[in-house]
Amino acid sequence: MEMLVASAIGLLTAVGVYLVLRRQTFPVVIGTVFLSYAVNLFLFATGRLTVNRPPIYAAGAAGYVDPLPQALVLTSIVISFGMTALVIVLALRSFLETGSDSVENSPASADEAEATQVTTDQARP
């Protein structure tokens, strides 16, 4: 089972890294989502894998899974959501502003941004 979880974490990381290296915003955002999955699972795994021992205090329980990584990962999941939301909105705004969703400053998109800038200037009274 450990092998499956470790390989899953590795797989999620690989996909996340690959997507983050793409040139458009949306794959990059999806890449960060994948990296979040990988990191959260990894942090969770530092508490080792335990089956059927939830961290709910009960008299006579045989034992508990380590609750601390779970608490950390819980906040991490919520923060990851905050990050995803912020990054996608950033991507959206940059697309609306420049008309391009490239994350590279290629000559073409730079020209386009400049053109937009010119129109903005002209639009001002």
Binding site: E2, M3, V5, A6, S7, I9, G10, L11, L12, T13, A14, V15, V17, Y18, L21, A38, F42, A45
Partner: peptide
């Protein structure tokens, strides 16, 4: 290649 290397590293570490 970068992604596969990163994935293998993380998987080995997790394991």
């Amino acid at each position: 290649a970068i992604a596969v290397a990163a994935g293998l590293g993380v998987a080995a570490l997790a394991f």
